[in-house]
Nucleic acid binder design. Sequence first.
DNA 1: CGTACCTTTGACGAGGATCAACTCGGGTGG
DNA 2: CCACCCGAGTTGATCCTCGTCAAAGGTACG
Lengths: 246, 246
Amino acid sequence: MSERFRVVSNINCQNCSISQLCLPYTLDDSSLNQLDNIIERKRPYHKGELIFQAGEPLRSLYAVRSGSFKSYSVSNDGDAQITAFHLPGDLIGFDSVHSSTYCSFSEALETSMVCEIPYANLETLSDQLPLLRRQVMRLMSSEISADKQLMSLLNNKSAEQRLATFLLDFSERFRSRGLSSREFRLSMTRAEIGNFLGLTVETVSRLLSKLHRESCITVDGKFIFLKDSPRLQDIAGLQLRACATS
Amino acid sequence: MSERFRVVSNINCQNCSISQLCLPYTLDDSSLNQLDNIIERKRPYHKGELIFQAGEPLRSLYAVRSGSFKSYSVSNDGDAQITAFHLPGDLIGFDSVHSSTYCSFSEALETSMVCEIPYANLETLSDQLPLLRRQVMRLMSSEISADKQLMSLLNNKSAEQRLATFLLDFSERFRSRGLSSREFRLSMTRAEIGNFLGLTVETVSRLLSKLHRESCITVDGKFIFLKDSPRLQDIAGLQLRACATS
DNA sequence: CGTACCTTTGACGAGGATCAACTCGGGTGG
DNA sequence: CCACCCGAGTTGATCCTCGTCAAAGGTACG
């Protein structure tokens, strides 16, 4: 066997397939090594396990390595609101760095792996590596931007538009990770989709059935196949005005 | 007159009353001077004037000095979504730093002043001043956190709960700026409140009337007086469970 | 002082929540 | 191996909040 001695070390930033979506993006080799040195990789999380809970002291940020997670917060009156679904390459915890404690929960939706980035070390390293600092800021900015878009979705769009947008969003996210954008598996339940989109389970289920009936998509449990994504985009409200005016 | 020669220089970060809400927070004197040096202060913006538009190259971030602004984005199908209202001390533009162009619009709601922070200079200075970098990250994190909370508000709460939360949010923001938390003027129109909260003008107007009728608040045009803020908090869903269990 | 916009209030209807019943699949224990 | 259970998902019937449409003041600003 040509395996290296430190078997665990074959998981690292230098050879990570999704590094262009993650912290390493734009980093040179030396910086990349420094970053890789502060990252800890532990046992996988199983479905339902929490990476952290609201109220715990902020130790680390986490990058999804494989699998998926949901982040949610719990309001004073006790109901949970899912604020994001995380796929490989996504960073988790930016909403908490202004505080000394986590202000949300993050839970595995399936067996998943993460790279743990101790926050104190990231701070120190960011002071030394301007490129790293900039990438952190880019990622935070992207999250802000995405949240604003989501706000617009929740405020102005119908249930059907929300769901269509949701499916297209995941399609695009899978595509950018080198997976199929036409067929994929959604690891979350209907209830979780509904919670995220501000809809009930029943509405989500009804609309998936409707889109299936209209041959727009094929639904088989958690597996989704986009049969007619142009029409899905049309439903989502991404009208191709450019076409109309040309 | 004991005024300095450079009259304009009496407006600076060193003597700014809201610096603890803004970039200068935690900075030492030397750093503060360096920050102040890169900041540009220009003519006031009048109601309706844009600081920047979506698509323009990203030049600067902006800190509100006086007055107020709204930020909004315009979706493909042409309708605008207000994503934030900005009060003095707030920073504007974090949603765009992952891009080379602004991805939203920012418009004065009344005659207002801003401090312009050229982004390239902020980048350079952040490389030199770890404290500044950390404050930028804290502010970005706070914005992410606030957006998540808003998401929860829009997804789970009734129209009345949204409006009550909105009023309490502004009350708190005015308080932290040394203004009255009981009575204040909302510089935006009912339509803008509605757009932000995912409600129609009519609903906002009706609910303000209802709260007024029930002696919870007093409404006089844009002036709001919180007569019974405990009840408003109750309506907002911030139930004081702690009391119930004690 | 006129015009345009903002605000308020009423009547009505639709979209999605709620309530309820049933199916399906997987895990557990007898 | 099968009975049982539990959670997830689907579908139907009904209800209610809030959006839509309409019309009448109010207010601000040139």
